[in-house]
């Protein structure tokens, strides 16, 4: 593959709707589109990797922080702990906060928000006129390292991902703002799991060994899903985590970030 000329990502600074007029603002980084082979089959034949076009979008440089989410629930009290309906957020929703409007101790404001449901994450992104990224957008951006758009073949890249998996989430996630990747986006690995908009489109069986079984009575549509590259297990494990979730679920290592289509300005 020829060397890619990496355009310096354009930084668009916008104001979170909930926090306009305050110091809070989010960096959205333009991620140029490109051809990308996902670990999940995207083409007509489920066992063959077909690169697809990913359209340009703008992604938050860092995950949404607890401080940003606090501003959101202050502006949208219906998303405060204890007020969000059970069907939208489980009992562990924001469980690490001291109160519905007080963060945990220890400088939590610039750490990624955790214990948030998909519904809450979606509502947050809507509040800043954005949406959750699709899996494809997230995977595309996260395939990069500091110098390459697609570093997935490098064992070192995989090693970094896995070393985070190996540490139980007993401590708070690190502060956001790690080294940006080639697109200028930070913290895609090694900080938190992140919700994607189509988390319930990443079919992975509760029993991951059941595969190649065309059980058309349960599923309609074309063919079975399978993971194309068996070496991509580091990414697969993220898919497994997302697949284990219901939309109201929260966990202590799961946060999110938002995107805007086409890198559009607000």
């Amino acid at each position: 593959m020829a060397l890619e000329i990496v355009r310096r990502a354009t930084r668009i600074v916008v104001c979170a709707a909930a926090a306009c007029g305050t110091a809070m603002a989010a960096d959205f980084i333009t991620v140029p589109g490109g051809r990308f082979a996902s670990v999940l089959p995207q083409g007509p034949v489920p066992t063959v990797s077909v690169p697809v076009e990913v359209a340009a979008f703008a992604m938050r440089a860092t995950p949404v922080t607890a401080g940003e989410f606090l501003a959101f629930v202050r502006a949208h009290p219906e998303w405060q702990r204890g007020r969000a309906p059970a069907i939208f957020a489980d009992r562990r929703y924001l469980v690490d906060w001291r109160s519905p409007v007080l963060l945990a101790d220890g400088g939590a404001a610039d750490r990624p928000v955790i214990n948030v449901s998909w519904f809450a994450a979606r509502a947050y992104c809507e509040s800043e006129r954005a949406r959750l990224p699709t899996w494809l957008e997230w995977e595309y951006t996260a395939a990069a390292d500091e110098t390459r758009r697609d570093a997935r073949a490098d064992p070192q890249w995989r090693r970094r991902i896995l070393s985070w998996y190996e540490r139980p989430a007993t401590t708070s996630p690190p502060r956001v703002g790690g080294a940006p990747n080639v697109f200028g986006v930070s913290d895609l690995h090694g900080v938190v799991w992140e919700w994607v908009d189509d988390f319930n489109a990443l079919f992975i069986a509760g029993d991951s060994r059941v595969q190649g079984d065309p059980d058309t009575a349960k599923f309609c549509g074309a063919g079975a899903l399978s993971v194309i590259d068996r070496d991509s297990y580091a990414v697969l494990m993220r898919i497994a985590l997302l697949s284990s979730l219901s939309a109201a679920d929260t966990t202590g290592s799961l946060g999110f970030r938002c995107v805007r289509p086409g890198g559009e300005r607000p």
């Binding site: 999940l40 509760g206 060994r209 993971v227």
Partner: peptide, 15 residues
């Protein structure tokens, strides 16, 4: 999750 049972992604083929 029971519904998801018929989906088929996984690493090990053994049953």
């Amino acid at each position: 999750i029971l519904d998801a049972h018929a989906t088929r992604i996984g690493l090990a083929a053994m049953l």
